[in-house]
């Protein structure tokens, strides 16, 4: 299998209020982005707990994208701020245990940032493609 023919499967956890709407806008505005992502819509990035990300990885995801509202924009005021602390530590812990840095990604995309969403997805997909299939577990 050559590097380029590998199509990674990326699970994207998007918050309902900003990032999911951002993805919607990307579609409506016809920004192109790779079809490698499978979107899971969650109420808020604060809803996402590490076991969910592990489940995705264990069941065959090659990469993960988590996206919420920009700090200060959370529909629930502070959900993404709690999430930010959680993910800062979680990402470091994963990398500490040897999961490659590009595997699990966190970002902010607002409802008006269709283009940013397309950029994020394209670049994350490309990075995960470079890493190859996830076979740590």
């Amino acid at each position: 299998m050559t590097e380029n023919s590998f199509e990674p499967k990326i699970i994207a956890f998007l918050c309902n209020w900003c990032s999911y709407a951002g993805a919607d806008l990307a579609g409506v505005s016809r920004f192109q982005y790779p079809s490698n992502i499978r979107i899971v819509r969650v109420p808020c990035s604060g809803r996402i707990s590490p076991p969910m990300l592990f489940s995705a990885l264990k069941q065959g995801a090659d990469g993960i994208l988590v996206s919420g509202c920009h700090p200060g924009d959370c529909h629930y005021i502070s959900g993404n701020l709690f999430a930010r602390r959680r993910f800062a530590l979680f990402k470091n812990l994963l990398e500490f245990a040897g999961i490659e840095p590009g595997r699990v990604n966190f970002t902010w995309v607002s409802a008006s940032e269709g283009e940013r969403f397309a950029d994020v997805v394209s670049q994350v997909t490309e990075a995960v493609r470079q890493l190859g299939p996830f076979n740590r577990f």
């Binding site: 192109q32 700090p71 670049q123 490309e126």
Partner: peptide, 25 residues
């Protein structure tokens, strides 16, 4: 406790920032 609170200025260097306009196709 650390995980039960937050600050607006918490570090977020880990957040993925896309390079604008470099998307493929």
């Amino acid at each position: 406790l650390t995980m039960t609170t937050y600050k607006l200025e918490d570090p977020q260097g880990f957040i993925f920032e896309p390079k604008h306009g470099q998307k493929k196709e």
